[in-house]
Design a protein around this nucleic acid. Sequence first.
DNA 1: ATAGTAATAT
DNA 2: GATATTACTA
Length: 308
Amino acid sequence: MREEEEPSWFARFDEDLPAPDELMPLSQSLITRDLAAAFDIPTHGGGGPLSGGADGAGGQEMNGGASSAAGSSGGNGGGNGEEPARTLKRPRLVWTPQLHKRFVDAVAHLGIKNAVPKTIMQLMSVDGLTRENVASHLQKYRLYLKRMQGLGNGGGGGGGSHSSGSGTDAATEHLFATGPSPFLPPGRGPAVADPYTPYAAMPAHPAAHHHHHHPQQIAHFHHPAARPLGHYGAGPGGGFDHGFLSRAVASGAPVGPPGMHHRMVGGGAAMGMMAPSSFAEELELGSRGGGGGGGRRELTLFPTSGEH
DNA sequence: ATAGTAATAT
DNA sequence: GATATTACTA
């Protein structure tokens, strides 16, 4: 006798907006060049629970490849021993595809109305990410969308073009969805001038987590095992480098919301193991080159420079 | 103080 | 050249 509301949004929630992001305090290592400098920093004892040790064995060494960098400006010949890790200059944030996907997801779930850098940053829950970083990227993202809408869109451009009915990207669609308020139960609701209440929830709210979690500021700099994200270079043969995922699993996946059962597909044996979380699946998406071969070195987040 | 835009640096 | 970073401005 109750609870007969519209399963629409409810169902959709599980379909289109799994967004477990909010349910899981992400922790991506944004340190890349910092790592070098971080070496200087003694493994902070933070000792946090995240210190999972599963990482020890990973012998992933970075081989030449990325040349840029190395950081360290500077000079010191070596020896420096004391330097505040928090005052380190952010070298250059690498918006890895996964990170970008997260960003888009956050924006999509927030709605253009709440798609403010600060909110996005908070929703992303990515440590090390600062408002400026998000703002910058947000700007780029907006431009990209604008280009798409303003110009008759043609994402693909010429030629081929697959079915894209309206040509609106999922991201764009979500972006247009302006739904700031979480869901308002019968009773009181903020004066929302929007007649639409698509979806949007801010479970990641600080108050929502009654645990030792600082309500303000999410600048946690504790990640001993930090290494340059293994971009989309997973390559065939295994060797997934999802530090983020690994950590989550190693940690016992603290994200176990009751009611969330993943459907284990036991059919495909070729695939082997798949992502446990739906969002993880998405994370992997975008980084895939194609099974065989195609290795994409420079992947442009969004084709901003289209034809002019 | 925050967000957006522009210019700049790598 | 593209991307990210920084500064200025609203």
